[in-house]
């Protein structure tokens, strides 16, 4: 057992320097003019229209500079119609303002692409209407997306077109509904207290009420 330095050369080790966020952004946006980029907390997010998704993902994998060999993560976020989608965080706490500019009524699917050889990370965000969620499957580009997309289908009901085996993965096969959607009923009941006071079940509470 010899530690790293004594090895012959690894098939693909850490070669090349990571690209900075600006370089990553420029590299993608100069190729795809309809991709919008945003940097927050040192992470680059590319907002990609669903019809360009496969092209952009394949470009990120195959481009020499980007060379994102690995799909590190794929997850969904549901932004339903309603007031609790924060367009702008009003800072009363002394923390800086941050915006989450999402359209309402969408399911956002986030792809974390990681380059092992160059050591940088890109996040791709693709939105789809929550009434008929549908996105192309990236399982043909990254086989690891197989389980991830099944999970997002299971939890959010997103149909990944071209997925080899789109079945439920964590919930039972005969489960009805997609539990991670914000409109999925939790089935809680009111808790009653004295003097006609009551606490509504968790999904009917106003999430904003306790924020000053």
């Amino acid at each position: 057992m010899s530690p790293t330095p004594d090895l012959p050369s690894p098939q693909r080790g850490l070669t090349g320097a990571p690209l900075s966020l600006e370089q990553l952004e420029a590299r993608v946006t100069e190729r795809f003019d309809d991709v919008r980029a945003d940097v927050l907390r040192g992470e680059l997010t590319l907002f990609v229209p669903p019809e360009r998704l496969l092209e952009v993902v394949a470009f990120c994998r195959d481009d020499e500079e980007l060379s994102c060999e690995m799909l590190a993560d794929l997850s969904g976020v549901h932004w339903p119609e309603g007031e609790h989608v924060v367009e702008r965080q009003v800072s009363t706490t002394g923390w800086p303002d941050y915006r989450v500019s999402r359209e309402q009524g969408v399911i956002e699917v986030l792809y974390i692409l990681r380059s092992v050889t160059r050591n940088h990370v890109v996040r791709i965000s693709a939105g789809t209407q929550d009434t008929d969620p549908r996105l192309p499957s990236v399982a043909g580009i990254y086989p690891t997306a197989n389980f991830h997309e099944r999970e997002v289908y299971d939890f959010f009901g997103v149909e990944f077109e071209g997925h080899p085996n789109l079945r439920r993965i964590l919930m039972p096969d005969d489960w009805v509904g997609h539990p991670h959607r914000k409109d999925y009923p939790l089935g809680g009941v009111d808790v009653e207290y004295k003097h006609d006071k009551h606490i509504p079940p968790p999904d009917e509470r106003d999430l904003r009420e306790v924020v000053e």
């Binding site: 927050l40 992470e43 590190a72 706490t93 999430l207 904003r208």
Partner: peptide, 29 residues
Amino acid sequence: PVPAGQVYEAVESPRGELGFAITSSGTNK
């Protein structure tokens, strides 16, 4: 409350990359 935004934080767990993709909408949850 935690300011709104999205982060992906990963650590090297005994089994590999353990990542948390966290989305905050600016509330206390």
